[in-house]
């Protein structure tokens, strides 16, 4: 039995764009050449700035974005799926096992359905229960696990605050008893006092149900607190991946180091040590040659613009894609 629940090899998600006056075709490589494994029971963090391809990668794993290159294998111990070629009943079976929690709890819930109907929908669509009694029982169980009141089930989403709505979204994702969940910026729209509550809820659900999470976020301090392993994305590629503490204590890629240094400290007396990155993230339509980060990297050398760095292991479970990761003292 393999211990990897998701295994990604050479994944690329490419979108054709018809642009220009003569219908000239271009390709956006939203995600390119990704090789990672997510182990069962892990809280796997994916961080990066907007436009780096985090969401696309998460969606590709759920077969919600077109897989143009490479392969994704999903194996929960019971069954093995080749995600790219899933169809019909196989796809339904896969969907039950892998679910998504959305970013915006205000947009993700239909205003015309009661909370009970929202949570019950996956069960009804996938015909997972025998009768209505069983459905209701299952909805009540999961709702109380997500700390929702039973009386709340009869109400409509507009009556709830952001934190409560996010708990409804989580209940809906969990009701079909999945093994793997993609949480895409699930706390980004919440206030800090409520964010902590949702993070604690996700962690406790993970422990109880033995879930595996792909936690996508732009907020490094949140990721640092909840994830076991963290991967950093830049312009469609993963530049570094390591166990949480190793990554935050000793980043090996200059981009990770810059991201960490840019987080404003809570201590007013702390001298800002932000590593200044020049410019902004380049367009994925025309990514820079060689290492994609070389245009903004403070340590760039001529080799960086000519040759793309290899994805290699640098330490125990620590992977990086930088020519000079061994020499740099970040």
């Amino acid at each position: 039995m393999s211990e990897n629940i998701v295994s990604i090899k050479g994944l690329g998600v490419h979108y054709p764009i018809v642009g220009g006056w003569f219908g000239e075709k271009k390709i956006v490589k939203a995600v390119d050449n990704i090789n990672i494994d997510i182990k069962r029971g892990q809280f796997f963090g994916l961080v990066g700035e907007s436009g780096s391809g985090k969401t696309t990668l998460g969606r590709a794993i759920l077969q919600a974005a077109p897989i143009s290159k490479g392969e994704i294998t999903f194996n929960d111990g019971e069954r093995k799926f080749d995600v790219k070629s899933l169809k019909n009943q196989d796809l339904l079976d896969f969907r039950r096992r892998a679910q998504l929690i959305f970013q915006d709890p205000y947009a993700a819930l239909s205003p015309r359905m009661t909370v009970r109907d929202i949570i019950a929908e996956p069960l009804e669509v996938m015909k997972l229960t025998e009768n209505k009694e069983e459905t209701n029982q299952r909805v009540r169980d999961i709702a109380s696990e997500c700390r929702l009141n039973i009386e709340h089930l009869r109400r409509f989403p507009h009556a709830f605050s952001g934190g409560q709505r996010q708990r409804i979204s989580i209940a809906r994702a969990l009701v079909a008893n999945p093994d793997f969940l993609v949480a895409d910026e699930s706390v980004a729209a919440l206030d800090v006092s409520i964010q902590a509550d949702i993070l604690n809820l996700l962690k406790s659900l993970q422990k109880e149900h033995g879930l595996t999470f792909l936690f996508i976020s732009h907020d490094l301090s949140v990721v640092a607190h909840v994830c076991d392993v963290v991967a950093v994305m830049y312009l469609g590629q993963i530049v570094e991946m390591a166990p949480n503490k190793a990554l935050f204590r000793k980043p090996r890629h200059p981009y990770t180091a810059a991201l960490l240094s840019a987080i404003p400290s809570l201590d007013p007396d702390a001298e800002s040590q932000a590593i200044k990155l020049e410019g902004e993230i380049p367009s994925p339509l025309s990514p820079p040659s060689g290492c994609r980060f070389h245009t903004r990297c403070p340590h760039a050398k001529p080799r960086c613009s000519e040759e793309a760095p290899e994805w290699r292991q640098i330490d125990e479970e620590h992977f990086v894609s930088c020519h000079f990761a061994d020499e740099l003292n970040l």
Partner: peptide, 19 residues
Amino acid sequence: AIPKLDDLDAPLTPIPGDI
């Protein structure tokens, strides 16, 4: 409630209830 980078093991304590 704010996650702090200098102490990764500190538990996050939410403020109970909603506004």
